[in-house]
Design a binder for these strands. Structure first.
Lengths: 124, 124
DNA sequence: CCGTATCCCCCATGATACTG
DNA sequence: CAGTATCATGGGGGATACGG
């Protein structure tokens, strides 16, 4: 049984999802973890040019708090910490893919729009 | 033939989509237009409590510029302006729905996570 | 009815330095 | 290796007023 939405609640819930993923670096991090990949803090630092330690730590903390990413810490010296997607987090991948597919559709749709506008010239 | 993505390009493209939809009011507007609904400026003003004219105009302009929403102006007094989804914009609906479905999955996945954490106690 | 124009504030991000 | 702590900043969004 699917949840029922009004325009307001649907928008609010999508916004809630956006808030989980907004943040300058979260999506890059996620795409480096999708598909079961496991990365250490320093791996992500290397994989993501331009990110600072502060931002990497902050975004990972938030993703972890939101249940999207799992942090696994090994009590040893030197420290070793691994990050991976949670099961739920991994399930986000196809949803993001549908957004990508949508953005790919843009090209094909533009000629149609042009034709529609031409057809509409002189409309009341 | 699908476009091929790296972690960086996939993230960049999803971010591009997010930028189209980010904005305090865009999603509410969209959900009031999805499914072929047509709304006048003043309709949207009434439908969306708390929005200012400035913000409504601004968000509509951006949605229009991005090809998501279509603005149809009738040259008459008093002015009449209608907004509706473009074909491409309407295609966004199922993609957003997959995000909603994902957020609905959260509940079911949380007990599992708890169990996993318990199982993992004492792990090296 | 359908918008612009201004001013202002806040918070996410960045730079930089330090630590168990 | 894997992080905090602190300070600075800029642009998105709100309040308010005005215009065709």
């Amino acid at each position: 049984m699917r949840k029922v939405y009004t325009a307001a609640t649907a928008a609010a819930d999508v916004e809630a999802v956006f808030r989980l993923l907004e943040g300058r670096w979260k999506l890059v991090i996620l795409f480096h973890l999708f598909g079961g990949q496991v990365q250490r803090f320093s791996d992500l630092e290397k994989l993501i040019p331009g990110i600072s330690q502060k931002m990497l730590a902050q975004q990972l903390r938030q993703l972890e708090a939101d249940g999207i990413v799992e942090r696994r810490q090994y009590p040893q010296v030197p420290p070793k910490v691994e990050y991976r997607m949670t099961e739920w987090g991994q399930a986000l991948c196809p949803a993001l893919d549908s957004l990508l597919k949508w953005s790919e559709e843009k090209q094909g749709s533009e000629e149609d729009v042009t034709r529609k506008n031409i057809d509409r010239v002189g409309e009341s």
